[in-house]
Design a protein around this nucleic acid. Structure first.
Lengths: 187, 187
DNA sequence: CTCCACATACCAACCGTTCTGTTTTAAACT
DNA sequence: AGTTTAAAACAGAACGGTTGGTATGTGGAG
């Protein structure tokens, strides 16, 4: 793997876990086993440019990952259960959540950097779009599907926050059980 | 108002908006118009102790605020609408959200400081408790109420994240409209 | 000989914290 | 009431460490 890709891969993980300001460039360089020269060679605009590259990387990773799940599963609910199960497994195994979320980055940077905010917004919109499409296939109207997709996105993101706070995967499990009722209510 | 209370008041606002690492002690001192001596006199353990004091302050503020709303409103849904309306108004007016949320602190600090994580966990639990109680009064069983309350907490917190990312209050408005369907689904 | 991909050394700015010194407050004693 | 005294409530300089960023050096590939 080339140096640049490796940097993005590692930095993505660190940013997801500790947020933007929570990770210093020196820490990233140490884990990557490279030096300042390499970083500022590939990312002349420094840390923020690296973050945006990481967000683009997450975009691809998350989008394709979710799309695979949503293609394999028959209904939206099945797909959601599979998604959350993956999150729960990840959380139980590693103690942190590395996929499907970037809440720490949003809450830190949304008001500080427009490029970062836009990248995050795009990612949310993309995820929501995948949900929405499947919901339409499930028989919901376009507007209803849009509303449900938004609520699903919010609920999962909020659920992750609760899991991190409680140090348990319980909240996401309960959400996984409760989500079908959300769809039921919209019929 | 005494210096200590003023510090907590101002720091609470700053922490909510910019997160923990996003605010330097110097910035806090500047806004408060005090110096290092005052800070480390009232909070010998420095910044983190101040943060915990802020979380306790938020606990009281949020709890009493929500409790008032939930007492005034007949049903859980009415109360929720009122709550979200308040959030939306705040967001439309000031561009940031200062009440009912501390997502930035959670995502930054949950894995770094146990005292902070516990304080956040307590706050979520308390909010959830208020929802839950009202839901039982609405006729739901205890377990069902607990599940719904958790989902409501997650959805609102996630909705706030979406609003910050999109720079619009639209997500919360849609959630406010969609939430009744969540309750409907549980019946 | 040149250009790319780094390494190394260095920098100013800022971080949170600690220190010592000064003022203010208020109770205690004459 | 006036003085003494001790503690509380600050002010402000100084500290070591870390931050993100830059300027220059260097080895290898073409």
């Amino acid at each position: 793997m080339d140096t640049k890709s490796q940097m993005i891969e590692i930095a993505t993980n660190l940013f997801q876990q500790k947020g933007y300001k929570g990770v210093g460039v020196n820490e990233i360089l140490k884990v990557c086993n490279i030096t300042k020269g390499a970083l500022y060679h590939h990312f002349p605009n420094g840390k923020e440019e690296l973050l945006i590259a990481c967000l683009k990387n997450m975009d691809e990773a998350i989008t394709t990952d979710i799309e695979v799940i949503f293609e394999r599963c028959q209904t939206t609910m099945e797909a959601l259960h599979a998604m959350i199960e993956k999150l729960v497994a990840n959380l139980d195994r590693e103690g942190t959540i590395t996929g499907y979320t970037f809440s720490s980055i949003v809450s830190e940077m949304a008001s500080l950097s427009e490029p970062v905010r836009n990248a995050c917004s795009d990612l949310y919109t993309k995820m929501q779009g995948i949900y929405s499409k499947k919901l339409v296939a499930d028989g919901f109207s376009k507007e209803t599907a849009h509303s449900i997709a938004l609520m699903m996105t919010a609920t999962i993101e909020g659920g992750i926050m609760l899991c991190l706070t409680r140090k348990t995967s319980e909240p996401l499990k309960i959400i996984s059980q409760g989500l079908p009722n959300l769809l039921k209510g919209f019929i």
